[in-house]
Write a protein that binds this DNA or RNA. Structure first.
Lengths: 243, 243
DNA sequence: CGCTATCTTGACAATCTTCAAGGCCTGTGG
DNA sequence: CCACAGGCCTTGAAGATTGTCAAGATAGCG
């Protein structure tokens, strides 16, 4: 199940942090360049193969992870295998949350990815010296909570059409503005989308087709979606559109 | 809509904090008795009438709230009135989350309640002097996120029966152990429960009746529930029970 | 003692799921 | 180079769970 290639941080690790593309956007960005060596000393860079689970729900939560490349799905399972994807994690996202001694979800890479792994204990100690890091972690956690509540509204009260539109809007908004007219490639399968939206594979597929037929999106190939009418997409997502 | 009776903290406010029943369990518990005066100086105690909304989604988020008595429902609305209750807040819970300039949800009291209101700016300043408070806030926020993910699993993947059982289990576990055999009174209506579980009033009612008929619970009157078979309730809630 | 809220119950309808089959694309091996 | 196997996706038909509409029961409150 687990297929990771870890590389213990060599002295040159420091370089990794200095040139890290996601540092500014992540928790590590709270530490000045000067103190970066200390962060770097705690980190282990891990390459995660596509499809490999590097966090398993219920395991002792010994580490934090910072996603630096790729996409992850975070999910919870019921005993009979029903699955709910609670979030997709992207570069800059921080995983492995503070509370509780065990992970509250599993994480699996959707494509070849990279994470920075930190000993939870050691990083917690760092928080004592750099309260700004902890503050930043609080800010990101609050944002996740806000997003989780939005998703609860989706799961509890939106129709299939509204759910799929909401998902596509979120994915579109993740694109740089100048690329939103072009087609985007989704890292997740229809199954993943279904497990994220509380729907079945078939309903996701049918709903995508319906959106295509009504001219809101185009689907060059299954994993590529182009949003033609972002206004319509939004009004569907918000539940403002008729039908 | 808003019906609050505020009382500007008098010098005697300090007494309120010192004798506060929920202090140990809440964010304020991170401050020593000695520094409590400073917290007290920032707080305004507010009595909230039953049914009164004291946070409205989208309003500028100028304050934090600490629930000291009663029960609140936190919810989000769609434009057409569909509602999703994302959480019930109890004494000790801290509301008004850090991120974003506007509240991400509305809050309404289910029964006569009391909250402590803090200027967000001033309390944030306090966090600078008392990192322990901020750490505690991170811990509680992390817990809320964990609970939110659990609820996403419920909303996305559980059946009506499993949802209602999960809800009743949570409410039961909130009771002191020695009272779990007795009946508990629910502060929320069937409508609230439906909006929390992503179901309609009718489905909640029917499912409750079904659980009663199968001997898992007793319903002396609509708002009083007694759990007869906690084991059965749990296995239904977890999706382990057949049917 | 009735009024209004809330809750329960029934019949029917709709959305979504399940089951099943077929198509498309990719990679592999003869 | 082509055939075949295995994912993944799409589509259809049938079924089930849950929602909608409607009526009556119950309970709290003035």
């Amino acid at each position: 199940m687990i297929a990771l290639s870890a590389q213990r941080s060599p002295p040159s690790q420091m370089t990794t942090c200095l040139s890290c593309q996601v540092r500014a956007a992540s928790v590590c960005g709270a530490v000045g360049t000067r103190d970066l060596a200390r962060v770097a000393g705690l980190a282990t860079v891990i390459e995660v193969e596509s499809g490999s689970a590097f966090i398993e729900e219920g395991e002792p939560a010994s580490h934090f992870f910072n996603v630096t490349a790729g996409v992850m799905k975070l999910y919870k399972l019921l005993p009979d295998g029903r699955r709910q994807i609670t979030d997709f994690a992207h570069p800059g996202d921080f995983l492995g949350l503070a509370e509780g001694s065990c992970y509250g979800f599993s994480a699996e890479a959707l494509e070849p990815s990279r994470v920075c792994k930190f000993s939870r204990r050691k990083l917690s100690e760092m928080f004592n010296d750099f309260p700004a890091m902890e503050r930043r972690l609080l800010a990101t956690t609050s944002n996740e909570l806000r997003a989780a509540r939005e998703q609860m509204l989706l799961l509890g009260r939106k129709t299939a059409r509204e759910r799929v539109a909401s998902f596509l809007r979120t994915e579109t908004m993740r694109q740089p503005i100048y690329q939103r007219e072009a087609s985007m490639s989704l890292a997740m399968t229809r199954g993943d989308i279904g497990d994220y939206l509380g729907l079945t594979i078939e309903t996701v597929s049918r709903t995508m087709t319906a959106l295509r037929r009504s001219g809101v999106i185009e689907i060059p190939c299954a994993s590529d979606i182009r949003v033609c009418d972002i206004g319509a997409l939004c009004s569907i997502a918000d539940g403002t559109a008729p039908n």
